[in-house]
């Protein structure tokens, strides 16, 4: 394979190309995933309290 005599070396050559291809495919498939990170608990609590503060006054 690829003109390489030893099977294990030819396998290594093929695996190098395959693993680089795996990286490309993984990046393409997951390009937009993982960005919508849940905010930290403290941030959630802070936003909640801000909302409370900014609520319009209702007598």
């Amino acid at each position: 394979m690829f003109g390489i005599e030893g099977t294990s070396v030819a396998l290594a050559y093929g695996l190098c190309l395959a693993s680089a291809a795996l990286c490309l495919i993984y990046g393409a498939v997951n390009f937009n995933r993982g960005g919508d990170e849940a905010p930290k608990r403290e941030e959630v609590a802070w936003r909640q309290s801000e909302k409370e503060v900014e609520k319009p006054f209702e007598p």
Binding site: C16, C23, G27
Partner: peptide, 23 residues
């Protein structure tokens, strides 16, 4: 990096880069 999305996007650059270096 800010989020996992940045890591996902970094994987292809990293893979090709290493192939072109040590390979």
């Amino acid at each position: 990096v800010k989020s996992n999305r940045e890591l996902n996007r970094a994987v292809p650059t990293g893979g090709i880069f290493i192939l072109m270096m040590t390979g």
